[in-house]
């Protein structure tokens, strides 16, 4: 049984201008011990999928799913209890994720105290140990610091140490390297890989960067307009993409292209989040689109761990 099982998840947010379909139909199976990448353009529902698993969707949002379970427990009822105990969050901008007016020591202590019954001095030692485990060279100095006194890479390590302090075994990492320099980002990815191996963690790695998928992930799921359109082992997805959108993503990847330009290099833009989509969401931009594509939802292709949604028969390129 996968640790995280999501089948046909949708998240709709009511607004004065109509419902925003932040997530339309995401299916995701994450096995214990893997780093599962979720990739897609900005606005395709990556963050909202993670937030739904944490029970942190905006007020009034509707969550529906055929299955939405973590370790056998329904997340629709148990997300609030599971977050901060079994499920942790590492967010995009570590500077924003840390409280600017509290010292690192007090922020670490708060987390440890919330989860474990320990005397004060033991908590301090525990905090220092966790910071050291994330590769911070001088934990005592970091504990005495305020967030603005640390570099982005150090801040992200503190955020990871906080997540470890909760005892969570499943981490949702939402673009953990986007706000960091490339080399620092690579160090953070290496750290996550090491922690997964050492502590038996499982990670949902949200990113818009194919390099992160290639570097750090075991399996990957591609999202488009709130739908998971292809999933499989990273090597398969990268080398034998089934879905035309995945192929377009990879084609737009000349190593010389600047980061931000990569995903937007595909012509056209994603459908408006308030629109209803009858057929394949990618049809307006797809070079291989057929009349049936815009009218009917595409069927599932592939097998077991290797699936994609497309009207094109398997083997067609």
């Amino acid at each position: 049984m996968p640790l995280l099982e999501i089948k046909n998840l949708s998240v709709s947010i009511p607004t004065p201008d109509g419902d925003v379909h932040a997530v339309r139909a995401v299916s995701l199976d994450i096995e214990r011990g893997e780093i599962h990448g979720v990739i897609g353009e900005s606005g395709c529902g990556k963050t909202m999928t993670g937030m739904a698993a944490l029970g942190l969707v905006p007020k009034g949002a509707r969550i529906q799913a055929d299955r939405f379970h973590f370790d056998g427990e329904d997340l629709r009822e148990n997300a609030v209890r599971l977050r901060g105990r079994r499920i942790g969050l590492i967010s995009q901008d570590p500077a924003a994720a840390l409280n600017p007016v509290l010292s690192i020591a007090s922020q670490m202590d708060d987390v440890i105290r919330a989860h474990r019954d320990m005397p004060r001095r033991a908590r301090r030692a525990e905090a220092a140990g966790l910071l050291a485990a994330t590769g911070l060279p001088d934990p005592e100095r970091v504990l005495r610091s305020y967030p603005h006194q640390l570099s982005g890479g150090m801040q992200q390590r503190v955020v990871i140490a906080q997540a470890l302090a909760t005892g969570a075994d499943f981490l949702i990492a939402d673009e953990p390297t986007t706000a960091l320099d490339v080399s620092v980002g690579a160090q953070v990815l290496a750290l996550l890989r090491k922690l997964v191996a050492e502590r038996g963690l499982t990670v949902l790695m949200i990113t818009h960067d194919m390099d992160v998928i290639a570097e750090a992930c075991d399996r990957a799921t591609v999202l488009y307009a709130g739908r998971s359109i292809e999933t499989g082992p990273v090597d398969d997805v990268l080398q034998r993409p089934g879905h035309p959108y995945t192929r377009a993503l990879l084609a737009a990847l000349p190593d010389a292209a600047p980061h931000a330009a990569r995903l937007s290099a595909i012509e056209g833009s994603i459908p408006a989040p308030r629109s209803t989509i009858a057929g394949c969401a990618f049809a307006p931009r797809c070079p291989q689109a057929m009349p049936v594509c815009a009218a009917e939802p595409p069927p599932e292709r592939g097998n077991d761990g290797r699936r994609w949604l497309c009207h094109l028969p398997e083997g067609t390129r």
Binding site: L54, L56, R83, G84, R85, I87, G88, L89, S91, D93, A96, A97, L98, N99, P100, V101, L102, D110, V111, A114, H115, V159, Q162, A163, A165, T166
Partner: peptide
Amino acid sequence: RHIVAARALGLSEPRILFGHALP
């Protein structure tokens, strides 16, 4: 965001209100 982060860390609501937001 740091309040969302505090919730994701499993801190109690009073602790978040008075210990994290109020300062």
